[in-house]
Write a protein that binds this DNA or RNA. Sequence first.
DNA 1: AATAAATTATTTGAGCTAAAAAATTTTTAA
DNA 2: TTAAAAATTTTTTAGCTCAAATAATTTATT
Lengths: 163, 163
Amino acid sequence: MSTDSSGNLNTTDKKFPSDHTKQIIFSIRRLIQASELYTKELNKKYQVSAAQLNCILILYEYGPLPPSKIANHMMVKSSTVTGVVDRLEKKGLVERMRNSPDRRVITIQLTEAGKNLAQNAPPPIQQKIIDGLKQTENAKKEQIVRSLNMLTGMLDVRDLEVK
Amino acid sequence: MSTDSSGNLNTTDKKFPSDHTKQIIFSIRRLIQASELYTKELNKKYQVSAAQLNCILILYEYGPLPPSKIANHMMVKSSTVTGVVDRLEKKGLVERMRNSPDRRVITIQLTEAGKNLAQNAPPPIQQKIIDGLKQTENAKKEQIVRSLNMLTGMLDVRDLEVK
DNA sequence: AATAAATTATTTGAGCTAAAAAATTTTTAA
DNA sequence: TTAAAAATTTTTTAGCTCAAATAATTTATT
């Protein structure tokens, strides 16, 4: 019986991951790391992290929002937003307001500097995907969507509560 | 002229991301968040994070290794490994050794407790992918590989130096 | 009206991540 | 042999993320 480099006896042996499986896991790790490296790069060049930029762009697109709504758009938990907003406030890019009749609610809004940054924003990481997909035929895009849906399905991700 | 909910004039207008593009970006975020949620879950149930478990399994598979090699296998930078190893050492699952003739090199090895954990390890996140892919036909797997390769290509990921 | 339940934002704690700087050691060159 | 360069690990720093607990407020119930 012969074995391959991963120790598989053969391609039908399901005890160990196949090469395809390894490639897929590797690619997912690459996607994650790409976003980590990108945020470091952004921060160095523009003194704004990916999360911060994302937050600014959301506020620019949707107008002033409370942290909970920002969290929904950013797809993170709202305790994460608190920290992001803290750092943006420290840089004078956003400010916290209390103007809702419900006094629990705080509204975050862009300052002039924040708007300015939004208008001259460096590309968020998504831009690379957006640009890349522009030259991609629809059929292929659908294929990518299907592939990713299979993967997210496998990871049994509970739905992100985006209201 | 009509606009859709994302403000697109029509499907050939390339100024804004299409729905497919949004779905793809959303899915990638889901993959990342799934791995974050999984590590929290692991930590709660087994007092070991995903990164820590990964490190343990690598040491079990390849034997004692210096941090730099662990980093290669884990696909992270070695500064990250330092912290992971610190926490594992604190739990008595690994130990740092200085046994190389090259005295800069530190070797990390599993303790008995560490080996024990490796043998009775809870599933790493990859297991969900591995299991999910088992019931997937080869053609589809290849499709997933192709899709992910397109995406990692777009993100212009510099090759992770896996030696 | 008083109490209980729900909601919103924040704090705290643990962990991951990478860059940059510092420390250590080996190798190379003068 | 000694000084400079290169390699490697560790430390430091800054940021993101989430869960859980807390505080403040509002809504619902009794």
